[in-house]
């Protein structure tokens, strides 16, 4: 009996995940009626995301030598089947004569592809995060919240593991990242962008940073639109100037745990996801 229930859960989960790209928007009432309350993230599934950050309002590094430990880390992680790494505030300094783009240097050192999740122009600086991954991507989108805040959405192949059957589990996801630093950004996100984004709810996977004193505003804003979506703060980041968060449909994705190591003067968070 227990195995039949388990098999049923696996079947539903796989069917749902395989069909996420064809989800269409439903009314809130229909969403709630269709929710399978027995569908919850299972700790036997695990996928790692590496997030490098100082969790403050400054660039993560300002010269090549500060980026070097990240390059060494991601080079090894690439050998260990990394599917996604993020370097927070990998700001780029632009000048006509010369450009400093340290995180592209990190990607090059690790033989990874990359894309810059832009947030805003700040004088001659591009503020944003660098996403690193092992294969090329076909499509990506920047969804504007305000002139100084964008969500980056990219199609990626998630690499996970099922510890129960000791097997790799890989499937396509739409990964999103954002940085919230003002209440106005959260207001615009909650009141318009999120309403549209959550329509693809089963594939709604967003990891980003939010200013510590805006965490409750983000949680409230998301819940006011649809309380089946949860904002979870990664352990160990709650007291920093910026918190690391997961925003996802609570019946599909959850954070299993967070560990931290220090590389030079940069913290590397290993986020374990379950689904």
């Amino acid at each position: 009996m227990k195995n039949n229930k388990l098999t049923k859960h696996i079947y539903i989960l796989l069917s749902v995940l395989l069909s996420v790209s064809f989800c269409i928007s439903c009314s809130d009432d229909n969403d709630k009626k269709e929710t399978n309350v027995n569908l919850i993230p299972n700790p036997k599934f695990d996928a790692k995301i590496y997030f490098a950050s100082k969790l403050n309002d400054a660039p993560i590094a300002t010269n090549a030598s500060e980026y070097m430990p990240l390059g060494n880390f991601f080079k090894q992680a690439n050998r260990d089947k990394l599917w996604l790494g993020i370097i927070d505030r990998a700001d780029v300094t632009y000048s006509v004569a010369d450009m400093f783009n340290g995180s592209v240097g990190t990607a090059s050192q690790a033989d990874l592809f990359s894309t810059f999740a832009f947030n805003r122009f700040n004088g001659n600086t591009h503020e944003g995060s660098m996403l690193l991954f092992p294969g090329y991507i076909k499509n990506q989108q920047s969804i504007k919240i305000t002139d100084d805040c964008y969500i980056r959405a990219i199609d990626l192949a998630l690499k996970g593991y099922n510890s129960e059957i000791e097997r790799d589990v890989n499937f396509d996801v739409v990964f999103r990242t954002v940085r919230f630093s003002t209440n106005d950004q959260i207001k615009v996100f909650s009141e318009s962008v999120f309403k549209e984004m959550k329509a693809g709810r089963l594939n709604m996977l967003m990891i980003g940073t939010v200013k510590k004193d805006l965490v409750e505003a983000l949680k409230t804003g998301v819940a006011s639109v649809d309380d089946d979506f949860k904002v979870a703060i990664a352990e160990g980041t709650e007291s920093s100037d910026y918190n690391l968060f997961l925003l996802a449909y609570e019946y599909i994705w959850a954070l299993k745990g967070t560990t931290k190591q220090t590389l030079g003067n940069i913290d590397m968070y290993e986020l374990s996801l379950m689904w």
Partner: peptide
Amino acid sequence: THTSRQGARELLTELGSLLGMYPLFGF
């Protein structure tokens, strides 16, 4: 890029790194 004769290097990113530019590969 990434071929064995190139040592499996990501050459567009490497060139981007030398120039400080953002790279995009089209398959």
